[in-house]
Amino acid sequence: MHLHRYEKIWLMLGAGGLALFIVLLCVNAFAMGMAPPSNMEMIDPEKVTETPPFDKPGLKQVGDNEYDAYMTAFAFGFAPTKMEIPVGATVNFHVTSPDVIHGFQIPETNINFMVLPGHISSATHTFDKPGEYLILCNEYCGAGHQVMATTIIVK
């Protein structure tokens, strides 16, 4: 099989760039701890409302300016409906669904993950700027999907 000289150069540059890129992704994920949200915890979707801490969704202070937010995503809303935190707070979101699949996205942050019934999804964000952040569902979940949203107020 004959490879043209230019094609060899072209493919070598491509392969080299690709290898470098993959190495960077690995460093980023494993050495710098920025792997995508991949929590392995499970829960019975038919018993979400009876299972602590999801029986009482809400914020729990766990550190100086750090909170655990236990939330449920359901057709068609999020619980709790109101959350307020001080500027600079770090929030660990833990979300699950008692019914179908939902999405959990906070635009203008990197919080964006799927919420699957049977699983608990987690991700962490530090809110450095004040404002009323929109939390929305970005996976189709039924007729009211477009109204499925809430906010988190950072003061």
Partner: peptide
């Protein structure tokens, strides 16, 4: 399925 729970980061990276 990168943004979903229940799949470990290592397996996600293998597929990536």
């Amino acid at each position: 399925q990168l943004m979903e729970p229940g799949i470990s980061p290592a397996w996600k990276m293998i597929h990536v």
